[in-house]
Amino acid sequence: MLWSKIKNKLDEKNMTEYQLGKITGLGPQQIHQLKKRNSENPRWLTMIKIADALDISLDEFREKGK
């Protein structure tokens, strides 16, 4: 679920995973873990970096109805 939200934002901004990694400082392994395991509990700073890179609010990653 989380990765699908990130992927949608990447697509909207015509960004690649590689570009996301460069902007955030996240390595390919960290991005792969988010993608492959669809991590339900990523680190707070990781999510801040991703939200900043995608120019969105952290609220956009919240699951509705929880």
Rank of each mutant, 00 (worst) to 15 (best):
M1E: 15
M1Y: 10
M1F: 12
M1G: 14
M1K: 13
L2P: 05
L2T: 06
L2G: 04
W3V: 00
W3Q: 03
W3F: 10
S4V: 11
S4E: 15
K5I: 13
K5R: 13
I6P: 00
I6H: 01
K7Y: 13
K7E: 15
N8S: 14
N8M: 10
K9Y: 07
L10M: 11
L10W: 05
L10T: 06
D11L: 12
D11P: 01
E12N: 06
E12F: 00
K13D: 01
N14A: 14
N14T: 11
N14Y: 11
N14R: 12
N14Q: 14
T16K: 04
T16G: 05
E17C: 02
E17D: 00
Y18F: 12
Q19A: 15
Q19C: 02
L20S: 03
L20V: 07
L20I: 08
L20W: 06
G21W: 06
G21D: 07
K22M: 10
I23T: 06
I23W: 00
T24A: 07
T24W: 03
G25H: 09
G25I: 10
G25W: 08
L26A: 09
L26Y: 02
L26R: 08
L26P: 05
L26E: 06
G27P: 01
P28E: 13
Q29R: 15
Q29K: 15
Q29W: 09
I31Q: 02
I31H: 02
I31N: 01
H32D: 10
H32V: 01
H32C: 04
Q33R: 14
Q33M: 11
Q33I: 07
Q33H: 11
Q33A: 11
Q33N: 14
L34R: 04
L34D: 01
K35L: 03
K35C: 01
K36P: 00
K36M: 12
K36G: 03
R37I: 04
N38W: 02
S39A: 13
E40G: 10
E40Y: 08
N41E: 04
N41D: 07
P42G: 10
P42S: 11
P42A: 07
R43A: 15
W44S: 15
W44E: 13
W44Y: 15
W44R: 14
L45D: 15
L45Q: 14
L45S: 13
T46M: 09
T46P: 03
M47E: 02
M47C: 05
I48D: 10
I48L: 14
K49E: 06
I50F: 04
I50G: 01
I50P: 02
A51M: 03
A51R: 06
A51V: 04
D52I: 03
D52M: 06
D52T: 08
D52E: 14
A53E: 02
L54A: 03
D55R: 13
I56P: 02
I56N: 04
I56M: 08
S57A: 09
L58Y: 05
L58R: 06
L58D: 00
D59F: 02
D59A: 09
E60N: 09
E60Q: 11
E60F: 07
E60R: 09
F61I: 05
F61S: 04
F61L: 09
R62H: 09
R62A: 09
R62V: 09
E63L: 10
E63P: 00
E63F: 05
E63A: 11
K64D: 11
G65V: 08
G65I: 07
K66R: 12
